[in-house]
Amino acid sequence: MQFHTFSSPHVHNGNSVPAVMRDVLLAVSPGAALMVYFFGWGVFFNLLISSVTAVAAEALVVKLRGREVGPVLADHSALVTAVLLALALPPLVPWWVPFLGALFAIVLAKHLYGGLGYNPFNPAMVGFVMLLIAFPKQMTLWTPPAGLDQQRLDFTETAACIFTHRLPEGLDYDAVTLATPLDKVKTDLGTGRTLREILTAPTFGTLAGVGWEWANLAYLLGGLWLIHRRRIAWQIPAGMLGSLFLVSLVFYGYDSDNYASPLFHLLSGAAMLGAFFIATDPVTAATTPRGRLWYGAGIGLIVYVIRTWGGYPDGVAFGVLLMNMAAPTLDHYTQPRVYGARR
């Protein structure tokens, strides 16, 4: 009798890249839903435009590269990139912002390097930074969170704003946008006010910014679930949140009038999304256990530095990209001691 032959091992635990990506998408969805709830339909449109663009662009590029499209799309990695990019974008950006961002992320940051597994930089963050630099004005178009918005745009109004750049009668952009808490803290500190005064503004809730605190908590929960399912490496969020916590604690302890509290930092901006979903992109992160801790810690530190002294309200994208560059070096210097090697 004749048999099939394959190389050992002959059994597999059933884990797969599509399954990993599906779990990531699932885990990010509560946070994404809260973002839609707090910041309006614009978030939804960003998700939609970014996803459609990313998947279409990936299909096209793969086809042009002469590969089979089906199996590549089936890994859902383009969708993950698209969702992460979209969640980092302000809700009222014109449609071509998520479109260009996703295109840039997939075509340049991912496939120009050889596709999934070969890209040295996190594609979503490359796309995001490109947008930040090219369209700085549009990238501030954040809506006020639910509860603080006198003028909430409904579905069609939002669509009109995004696709045709038209706002409802009698409204201008100032009326429908609001600086994010991180932005506000930064600009207000610049005017010489103390944090105690700044934090009395309605933008701020119990823990951090209104809306933001809940979205961050939802991302945290989703992230913990991913760690529990062993879909992401715990060292990266632990390193990033740990270092962000520690540095902010030091400065907060030193001068709480001018430096925000650790809790504020952990629950603001893209802290949790970054720690659990963006920085944990395995392709571009460090890969040794200790390397990942340092990698995360580096991001946390850069985030704090940029938030506190840099030119942008948040620094997750820059932190991730800078540490992407450092990842190979980190890996080299943090190789585990192999069994039997001299201690």
Binding site: D75, G115, Y118, R230, A233, V283, V338
Partner: peptide
């Protein structure tokens, strides 16, 4: 599929290799 550098392999390697 391509290696996504997830590190699962490292986690289970009894020789503590990469």
């Amino acid at each position: 599929r391509p290696c996504i550098r997830c590190g699962e392999c490292e986690r289970v390697c009894p020789a503590r290799l990469l």
